[in-house]
Lab assay of single mutants.
Amino acid sequence: NSLAEAKVLANRELDKYGVSDYYKNLINNAKTVEGVKALIDEILA
Rank of each mutant, 00 (worst) to 15 (best):
N1R: 12
N1F: 15
S2K: 12
S2H: 09
S2Q: 10
S2N: 10
L3Q: 00
L3S: 01
E5V: 13
E5N: 10
A6E: 04
A6N: 03
A6W: 15
V8Y: 14
V8Q: 13
V8C: 06
L9R: 12
L9Y: 07
L9P: 00
A10I: 03
A10M: 02
A10Q: 01
A10T: 01
N11Q: 15
N11I: 15
N11D: 03
N11P: 01
N11R: 12
R12S: 08
R12Y: 11
R12K: 12
E13N: 05
E13S: 07
E13G: 03
E13Q: 13
L14T: 02
L14Y: 02
D15R: 09
D15F: 09
K16N: 07
K16E: 05
K16C: 04
K16I: 06
Y17M: 13
Y17V: 08
G18L: 06
V19E: 04
V19L: 13
V19D: 04
S20R: 07
S20Q: 07
D21T: 12
D21N: 12
Y22G: 04
Y22A: 08
Y22R: 07
Y23S: 03
Y23M: 06
Y23T: 03
Y23N: 03
K24D: 01
K24S: 04
N25K: 12
N25I: 10
N25H: 12
N25M: 13
L26F: 05
L26D: 02
L26W: 08
L26K: 09
L26G: 02
I27T: 01
I27N: 00
I27Y: 01
I27M: 03
N28D: 09
N28G: 05
N28K: 08
N29H: 09
N29R: 09
A30L: 05
A30M: 11
A30E: 07
A30C: 06
K31Y: 07
K31T: 15
K31I: 10
K31R: 09
T32H: 03
T32D: 06
V33H: 05
V33E: 04
E34M: 09
G35A: 15
G35E: 15
G35K: 13
G35M: 15
K37F: 15
K37W: 15
A38D: 07
A38H: 07
A38L: 11
A38V: 08
L39T: 03
L39F: 04
L39Y: 04
L39Q: 02
I40T: 07
D41Y: 14
D41M: 15
E42T: 11
E42I: 13
E42P: 03
I43T: 02
I43G: 03
I43S: 02
L44T: 06
L44F: 07
L44E: 03
A45F: 13
A45L: 13
A45P: 05
